[in-house]
Each structure stands twice: as structure tokens, then as C-alpha cells.
Design a protein around this nucleic acid. Structure first.
Length: 435
RNA sequence: GGAGGGAUGGCAGAGCGGACGAAUGCGCGGCUCUUGAAAAGCCGUGGGGCCUCGGUCCCCGUGGGUUCGAAUCCCACUCCCUCCGCCA
């Protein structure tokens, strides 16, 4: 959530920044007015409250002097004021609630560096990588045996069973078999092993409270996107970012502890309500997928370096896996609501001939931390300061899996997997037809 | 699911209707003493909001209630601990 002070002190600048991502000026003005209103109501209420407290003191004093009639009169006066105070309190609270809701719905202020644009087509491609690029090899010319979509490969090799997945849970709930299942497990083990040097491994809960979903910005704005278990009022996490960001919710850290870095592999659940019917073939879009997530709390000074590190780790994995990918700098119109700056990593799938997002590395500044109330005590003293939060995937396996089987497909129909996975696959890096 | 106990500042822990945002100890910071350190002594030390920067209001797990007045009494809930039941 945006600092409400900006609406008082820097409204013009704020409105201009938010306009870059399509927020109507009227929205900004409305929040500013709600803020003024709520403060006025608060002042009225506090004045009444002060009077009640003063009268209560006088009641006691009168009682101690034995003046019971005076005490009774004062009590009566205070009672009347108290009723008015309660009324004013209710009004104030209602106004503050309206203000809070409006603030929660507003997206973050984009970073100055984020490119302008109104939608995905205006994202800026920063770089592109493929095996051998460093030694001057030109972009790969994929062969016809690689131009087979992964759902066909998966069926041929018996490693992906979408029909039975759908039987269990409906469409877009994939079921992997044999080496296909093992590959997912291997990828998670491989990636975590690469990150635990610096990122503490966490195994968080998969179902979380509404407060936990609200802290990251997934609620209230995107309630349609989440699986909600009504009976217990719990949400299935759409990404490990959600539990990881709330790990220290409500706490005050010491500056010396920062940056704090975490990684986790979890299942991720998405209803894909807004994308119904699009990209539904194979594994392109699924309701459940496994992903390794990196997440950090940082001081504002540390944030840029962490952002670069998470990006580098995602890229590092893609390079070791030998997959062509590109890096996009998301324009203001495509930025997720809580993010100030996001770099997307997109892997190339030769079988379906398209780049597909496998990681979104985002810097939220203090937008999530303000919702989650996570602060740190500065080394040199002074009041606690909100942390910056950052996160990114490394990586989303439901899209790496297709990239690997399509890219690694041999002329004989078998699939060759990258050597870096051998230790996690029992040494076997070829998936053959009769596996 | 059942029974009982608990939740107070960075930590421990007192307070159980009136000047309590809260004793005391530890920790932390500063100073004195010391060649230096330790010890000792002295002083300081939670967070948030609002305004005319001097004030003022809120926060004792959360939400409600009683009262002129609530950390303190009542109700509900959450979480933690102990025991029982069930269970991978």
C-alpha cells in the first residue's frame, strides 16, 4: 500500500507517477479527500475523549473529598459526553475503513527506471541468451524433431498423463508419470541445492490466512484468482511469495540481520479465472504447479543488489539447463499491482514456438512491507523503517519441463536432459520410449 | 474433539477498577571511576496516529461488552503450554 502521506505532501508527483500505469487522477484525488475527512473526524473524536477522561478524573477527586452530589453530577455529564464520543468513534472508524480499502486497491508507484507502456506489447527486451552465445554461436536453429509440442512428447514417452489428471481434478491439473514425475522432483532438488548457500530453505504451509494473502497484495484485488476454502477461511497459495513475505509479518528486525533471504519449493494454485480458455494446451497454463521461489527482506540500499542477484540466479539455472531465454523489463502498464519494477524471464519452447514466462523478479519497495508491517531498526538509531521486499522464481517447473522435453528431443523421439540434473535423476539423463 | 493453565515493553516478570504506557531485574546506549577492560555508580532506553510542536489520542493476544473511568471485571475468538481422545 502506498504511504498515505504522499497524498498530502506530493499529490501532483504521485498522480503523475500513477498515471504512468493507468491510474485515473480522480482516484488519487478521492483518496486524498477521504484522508482529509478521516483526519477531521478523528480530531473531533479525540477532543470528546479528552473531555471524558478529564471528567473521570474529577469524579474521583470529588469522591475523595466526599462530595457525592458533585460526583454524581459529573458522572452524568461524562456519561452524556461518552455517548457522543462513541458515536464519533464509529463515524471515524467507518471513514478510516473506506480510506484503507481505497488505499489497498491502489497499485504501487512504479520505479523511475521502469519503462513506460500500456501493456505487454510494450515490455522492453533487455537481453536474450542461448547456449554458445558467449563464444559467438548464432541463435539456435531448432530441428524438426524439436518442433513437437510437449503434450505430444509427454504422451509418446508416457511421462505426462493429462487425461488422468483431469479425471482427478478437472482440466489444467497435470499428472506426471515415471521420468516426467521424477524430472519435476529433480528440478526442485537441483534448484534448492543451488540457492541454499545464501537463501534459507523454508517449507511453508500451503494454505494461508486472509491476512497473509493481503500482505503481498493478492487480496483484496485478486480474490477471483485464488482458491478459497470457505469452511476454514483459508487460501491456497498462488506462490511461495505469499507465505515467505509474511514470515516476519508484524515484526521489527535489526538492520544487522538484513538482508534476510529465503527459498522454498511449493505447489502453487491459480484459478486462472481471467485467462479461461487461453493457452490451455498441455502445460502452458495450469491450476497447480511446482515452483522454487526466492524472497528477501532488504534495506532500501540493499534492494537493487538483491534484485540483480535473484535475476542472476534465475538466469543461471536457465543457462545451466541449456535453455534459450530472454529477459523483459516490464513496462508500467504490465507491472503487477504491488510491484515497482519487474524483470520477467521467459524461456523459449521450440515445440510450440513461443517464449513463456518462468520467473517474475519483482521489487516492491515498501508496498508489501507497509501492508505486512515489517520494519527494521536502523543501525544508527531512530524510529523503525519499513523493509523492502523482493522476490522471484528460480524457477517455475511447469514451464521448464516443456522447454526441456521440447529442446532436448532427439531425432529418435527420446529426450536428452541436461547433465546438471544427472545427480538428481539417478544418473539417467535420457528419457526413452520404453521407460 | 474434550479438560485445565496461560498471553503485559528486546527478554524475564509484577500489576488484578482511578495519575499505569505500566514496578523490578536482565539486556541495550551514554557518562563517571580506570592505563585499558571488568566490576561498581549515575542517567537514559517501546510503538503508532493527529494538530497550532506544545500538546493530544491510541496500543497490555484479537474483537465486543460493563463503567464517570478498564492492563485490571464480563463475553466470544485466536494462539501457546499440559493432559485425554483421534491420527500420517
Amino acid at each position: 500500500m502506498i504511504d498515505v502521506h504522499l497524498f498530502r505532501e506530493d499529490r501532483e508527483q504521485l498522480a503523475a507517477a500513477l498515471a504512468r500505469r493507468g491510474v485515473d487522477r480522480a482516484e488519487v484525488d478521492r483518496v486524498a479527500e477521504l484522508d482529509v475527512e478521516a483526519r477531521e473526524l478523528l480530531r473531533t473524536q479525540e477532543l470528546l475523549r479528552t473531555q471524558v477522561k478529564e471528567l473521570s478524573r474529577q469524579v474521583r477527586a470529588a469522591q475523595q473529598r466526599g462530595e457525592s452530589e458533585t460526583a454524581a453530577a459529573l458522572r452524568e455529564e461524562s456519561r452524556a459526553l461518552g455517548a457522543r464520543e462513541r458515536e464519533a468513534g464509529a463515524t471515524t472508524e467507518a471513514a478510516q475503513q473506506v480510506l484503507r480499502e481505497a488505499l489497498l486497491l491502489l497499485p504501487n508507484v512504479p520505479d523511475d527506471e521502469a519503462p513506460d507502456g500500456s501493456g505487454p506489447e510494450e515490455n522492453v527486451e533487455l537481453r536474450r541468451w542461448w547456449p554458445g552465445i558467449d563464444s559467438g554461436v548464432s541463435a539456435p536453429a531448432y530441428q524438426s524433431h524439436q518442433r513437437v509440442p510437449h503434450w505430444e512428447i509427454g504422451e509418446q514417452l508416457g511421462i505426462l498423463d493429462l487425461e488422468r489428471g483431469a479425471r482427478l481434478s478437472g482440466s489444467m491439473f497435470p499428472l506426471y508419470r515415471k521420468m516426467g514425475a521424477r524430472l519435476i522432483r529433480a528440478l526442485s532438488a537441483y534448484a534448492l541445492a543451488r540457492h541454499v548457500d545464501v537463501y534459507e530453505e523454508i517449507r511453508p504451509p500451503t494454505l494461508v490466512l486472509t491476512d497473509t494473502m493481503t500482505a503481498t497484495g493478492h487480496l483484496p484485488r485478486f480474490s477471483d484468482e485464488g482458491y478459497h476454502i470457505e469452511r476454514d477461511d483459508l487460501w491456497a497459495i498462488p506462490t511461495a511469495e505469499v507465505p515467505l513475505t509474511s514470515l516476519y509479518r508484524g515484526e521489527t528486525l535489526e538492520e544487522a540481520e538484513l538482508p534476510m533471504r529465503f527459498c522454498a519449493v511449493t505447489a502453487c494454485f491459480r484459478r486462472e479465472a481471467g485467462a479461461a480458455g487461453r493457452d490451455t494446451r498441455g502445460l502452458l497454463r495450469t491450476h497447480e504447479f511446482d515452483k522454487v521461489e526466492l524472497m528477501a527482506y532488504a534495506t532500501p540500499d540493499q534492494a537493487a543488489e538483491i534484485h540483480a542477484d535473484i535475476t542472476a540466479r534465475g538466469e543461471g539455472l536457465l543457462q545451466e539447463l541449456g535453455l534459450m531465454y530472454r529477459v523483459l523489463d516490464l513496462c508500467t502498464g504490465d507491472l503487477s499491482a504491488p510491484s515497482a519494477r519487474t524483470l520477467d524471464l521467459e524461456v523459449y519452447l521450440p515445440g510450440v514456438d513461443r517464449f513463456w514466462e518462468v520467473s517474475s523478479v519483482s521489487w516492491y519497495r515498501d508496498y508489501q512491507a507497509r501492508r505486512a508491517n515489517i520494519r527494521y531498526r536502523p543501525r544508527g538509531g531512530g524510529p523503525p523503517v519499513l523493509v523492502h521486499t523482493l522476490n522471484g522464481s528460480a524457477l517455475a517447473w511447469s514451464r521448464i519441463w516443456p522447454a526441456l522435453v521440447e529442446t532436448g528431443r532427439q531425432p529418435d523421439g527420446s529426450v536428452r536432459l541436461p547433465e546438471c540434473l544427472a545427480p538428481y535423476l539417478g544418473g539417467e539423463t535420457v528419457i526413452r520410449r520404453r521407460d
